[in-house]
């Protein structure tokens, strides 16, 4: 049975990022999560697999902590999870990521469709799907707002800055979906229980035979901070609070 691959990234939750006094950042206590829009990619892959009568699988490239994501991903309707386990993922650029994912996809056998999200919530580079297309020399459709499949023909509606485009492709192909494409449900208890029993495949760095060294050299990371007054009007009735707000805005000279 041909596979439909959802690529998802295990990312640091940006709301956990701590800022040091010198504006350097501290990621030590940050928790991981499946990148927000990748949940839409997983849901789209599950839907596409139904239409194609194929098997929806997940694929992720991350460090050893990323293992925690496999059950979560599998509880969202995927049947198998593939994990490329490498500490090099932490410093990966778009080239490394696409090369790693492409090699794993080639290992899977017959693949009809690869689904990525528009962009990952950490990098938001919006590079991976088109680059993956180049690595695998497969056709790519980005900015997909909706799609239908008939036989092996996928028809997609793309949403670009100034137009809507209907385009058509014969599978296999790669698509990058916008988050508006679907509303992924929260996995039920049964799905969560079952997830642990599903097939998980791990690739080690050495299995891949790709150069995982990035082309870019990161020079500096600096937190963006914003100084604000943080005054909340809490005294008195609501009418009083609104009055105080208006007085403050008048004083600021903005109304």
């Amino acid at each position: 049975m041909a596979r439909i691959v959802a690529c998802y990234k295990w990312v640091i939750d940006e709301s956990d990022i701590k800022v040091n006094p010198d504006l350097s950042i501290n990621l030590q206590n940050s928790k991981g999560k499946i990148s927000d829009y990748d949940k839409n990619a997983i849901e789209a892959a599950v839907n596409a697999a139904e239409l194609l009568e194929g098997k929806p699988v997940g694929l992720t490239f991350g460090n050893s902590k990323c293992k925690a994501s496999l059950k979560d991903a599998l509880s969202r309707g995927l049947e198998e999870a593939y994990f490329i386990n490498s500490e090099k993922a932490d410093k990966a650029d778009g080239r490394v990521t696409a090369a790693a994912l492409a090699t794993a996809i080639q290992e899977m056998g017959e693949v009809d469709l690869v689904v990525c999200a528009e962009g990952a919530s950490d990098t938001y580079a919006r590079q991976t799907a088109p680059r993956l297309g180049a690595c695998l020399d497969l056709p790519v459709i980005s900015s997909v707002n909706s799609f239908t499949i008939e036989g092996k023909t996928l028809t997609a509606i793309r949403k670009l800055d100034d137009c809507l485009e209907t385009v058509k492709v014969e599978l296999p192909a790669i698509i990058a979906v916008l988050p508006e494409i679907n509303h992924p449900p929260i996995p039920g208890l049964k799905a969560v229980m079952n997830a642990g029993k599903k097939k998980m495949v791990e690739f080690a760095e050495a299995d891949l035979k790709v150069d995982l060294n990035p082309k870019n050299q990161v020079l500096d990371l600096q937190a963006y901070v914003m100084e604000r007054k943080n005054i909340v009007f809490a005294d008195g009735e609501l009418t009083e609070q609104v009055k105080n707000l208006v007085i403050a805005l008048k004083k600021e000279g903005v109304i």
Binding site: I25, N216, D220, L221, Q222, A223, Y224
Partner: peptide
């Protein structure tokens, strides 16, 4: 800008 706007990254090519 990375992490949704929280961090600025400088890189060289």
């Amino acid at each position: 800008i990375i992490y949704g706007g929280a961090v600025r990254q400088k890189e060289a090519f």
